[in-house]
Design a protein around this nucleic acid. Structure first.
Lengths: 336, 336
DNA sequence: CTGAAAGCGCTTACAG
DNA sequence: CTGAAAGCGCTTACAG
């Protein structure tokens, strides 16, 4: 079932079929519709490989996730729910446009990228001034990032959550529940959501006349390091009455630290996490979290990338609205 | 830089170049070598898209992971270290052969598969009599599974660990450390590694005159359900002196149950897990585990799939040797 | 407004 | 032993 078959069935040339299906050329609307119907009735689907070949494309989008170094071994962060959902979300979004998403192994040089040869790249959580953006764009491979590069304020090719607003919403909620000493386990990285979240936290605290408590935590050994940081906070002379664990698996560490000390959540401490995940949902009690809607972020990133691939102009970033999921870990009985 | 350029540079026809590079036709070895050198020196790489197009292929392999249903939401199991490593391992292996691996969204019908149109499928942990195998093979899409379909004993198209041996090795190790009441948290599924592991456990116990204790645990809420199962075992009249948590995140549940009860590992209880992962490595104490070498399994699966795609016969499955990683959680001082 | 033809980069009968 | 030519399924100048 090729384009010739459709042309024959519709009694027109292949050119006309191609134009009709791709919305090109100057055809009568009527002709266009008729040809579309014939194509549908024949169950015709244009060959993606042929199109890719014709256009000099490979039909693949590379997905690049951050990695971390755990005791000398490099791991993709795809082990985290957030990136996992980004991965399957982008796969789904790309499919519907005839693209395949490939997980990218550790890659650094232009040569390696040439070998892989993706049409475009979705890059998650670029570091400040991320060199991969220049490398790829320099090779003619467009990049759309999920979260922006903090050092490239003018670059519009990104999708992100509203990190400032998310943090403020969460802080407002904790404040409404009576929290007055709110501590933050912040991820030690130059990722935009971290920087923006921490900044929002500090400015909110200043605005409310409250003292900020920020503990920097690595992004390599998430559970272990957040556990240590949480211990330090909880053992301080004036321990917090609320704790925001910004990154995934930080709440695991925080939860362990609380249990060991007999600190009850939410009675003695309100606990919230900046990125929703299974652990937060299943924990006892369930943990309040910001749902960044990673599947939507991924969909938006793929869409923006395809627009760039099709030569359309992209003027501004896409903001994907997040949702605060309030759960028992931050709700005191009799309040709010 | 196309095949014509190479032909021109080498002073031969494109046919000859194609044959030389693909090891086809009847060329003098000398000619072959000379052409290969010219191609190399020009930095020529055949276009994968053109080849795929020519062969009527899409150049993509679909990776299908099991999913689970957590409170009404479907999750890919890629959140687990094992599947994550399978994913990146297969991506890497496929790349080097010019294939892209795509993560497959939830798919069920032939129509949906046709839309995706992969050249072949790597299917992880098929259920007994998995209908997807028939569906895909019926569409002419070859499937290689990681772990076999228990109901298709004669089907050779799979890669697996030596589940029987792995369980026996682990049991021998625990036995040597003095354990005499070894309990098993077994995954409730029809996956081959589960069935074979449980069977090996039971036959080993029988052979050693020890009583088996098997607790079935769901594969949906891994941590929560393994926690409950572990509690039941530890609270029994005659609690075990060793515990094998077969699946990932089961050791999280078991660890929590022990901590709550003040049961020390390894002093009071030996704890081991059937699938190595980050948590097991970072836990305190680190947990003994079977390393199934998922990256190697993925590589072997991709290789077998490509052999099938190239029309080569595959007569038997590939067995990927596993490794028992002995860590402090099963080593009693003064023993072994 | 529509069609005939060239060509994307390969591979593969087939001819010599 | 090697080469000229057809063709995979599309899209796109270009001609009419």
């Amino acid at each position: 079932m090729t384009i010739r078959d459709v042309a024959a069935a519709a009694g027109v040339s292949v050119t006309t079929v191609s134009d009709a299906l791709n919305g090109k050329g100057k055809l009568r609307q009527e002709t266009r519709d008729r040809i579309r119907r014939t194509a549908d009735s024949l169950g015709y689907r244009p060959s993606r490989v042929a199109q890719a070949f014709r256009h000099g494309r490979t039909g693949t989008i590379a997905l690049v996730l951050p990695h971390r170094d755990v005791s000398g071994n490099e791991y993709d962060m795809i082990g985290l729910d957030y990136y996992m959902t980004i991965a399957s979300g982008s796969a789904r979004a790309a499919f519907s446009e005839g693209y395949a998403v490939m997980l990218t192994p550790r890659i650094s040089t232009a040569d390696e990228w040439r070998l892989i040869g993706p049409d475009g790249v979705v890059l998650c959580d670029p570091a400040a001034g991320d060199p991969r953006i220049d490398l790829l764009e320099g090779m003619g491979i467009p990049v759309v990032s999920i979260e922006r590069d903090p050092d490239r304020p003018d670059r519009p090719f990104y999708v992100s959550g509203d990190n400032d607003r998310n943090m403020r919403d969460l802080l407002d909620h904790l404040h409404a529940q009576g929290a007055r000493r709110i501590a933050l386990l912040s991820a030690r990285s130059t990722w935009a959501w971290t920087l923006e979240g921490t900044q929002a936290y500090e400015s909110w605290c200043a605005g409310h006349g409250l003292r900020p408590f920020v503990a920097q935590v690595s992004v390599d050994r998430l559970e272990a390091d957040s556990y240590r940081a949480a211990c330090a906070l909880l053992d301080a002379a004036e321990p917090p009455d609320a704790l925001i664990a910004s990154a995934e698996q930080y709440s695991e560490g925080a939860t362990r630290a609380c249990r060991e000390r007999g600190i009850r959540v939410p009675e003695d401490l309100l606990l919230a996490i900046g990125i929703d995940n299974r652990f937060a949902q299943q924990s006892d009690p369930p943990i309040t979290a910001i749902d960044l809607r990673p599947a939507d972020q991924a969909g938006a990133a793929v869409e923006m990338l395809l627009r760039r691939l099709n030569g359309e102009r992209v003027e501004r970033p896409t903001l994907v609205p997040s949702r605060l999921r309030v759960r028992s870990s931050t709700v005191r009985r009799g309040v709010g």
